[in-house]
């Protein structure tokens, strides 16, 4: 199973194995990784599952939709070039070893 590493704002890391097809958002909620709220439950509506993706891995992700792009303009923490909504990143073997940094706030 592909691995994800979550790095919270304080620097603490959590590494988990995730079934392919599971989103980075859902995997965090299922394992109790703090820092992702996902208030809308993965419906691409709320921008509270914001993450910063390890820059060298950005190109591995599928391109963002216009919907996600617009929502990222409204995230609570700074939007950066490597900002993504974790509900839109579905794990697959090619993403094995993905590292995502959690922002200080989601609301």
């Amino acid at each position: 199973m592909p691995k994800i590493t979550y790095i919270v704002a304080s620097g603490a890391t959590t590494e988990i194995d995730v079934a392919s097809g599971t989103s980075v958002m859902r995997a965090a909620l299922q394992t109790g990784v703090p820092g992702i709220l996902a208030e809308c439950g993965g419906n691409t509506m709320c921008a509270t599952c914001h993450v910063y993706v390890e820059e060298s891995q950005l190109s591995l992700l599928s391109t963002m939709t216009a919907e996600e792009d617009a929502l990222l303009d409204g995230v609570a923490a700074d939007r950066r070039p490597n900002s993504r909504l974790s509900c839109q990143i579905n794990m697959s073997p090619v993403l094995d070893g993905l590292r995502v940094y959690l922002p200080e706030r989601q609301t």
């Binding site: 909620l29 439950g41 993965g42 419906n43 609301t107």
Partner: peptide
């Protein structure tokens, strides 16, 4: 509680479009 996924605002394409406004007012 981790409430993400509750269906109080629905889910899917018809999920409450005003949910952010509701949350802001309540918060």
């Amino acid at each position: 509680r981790v409430t993400s996924g509750h269906v109080g605002f629905g889910s899917g394409v018809h999920m409450c479009v005003g949910q952010l406004l509701a949350r802001l007012e309540a918060e």
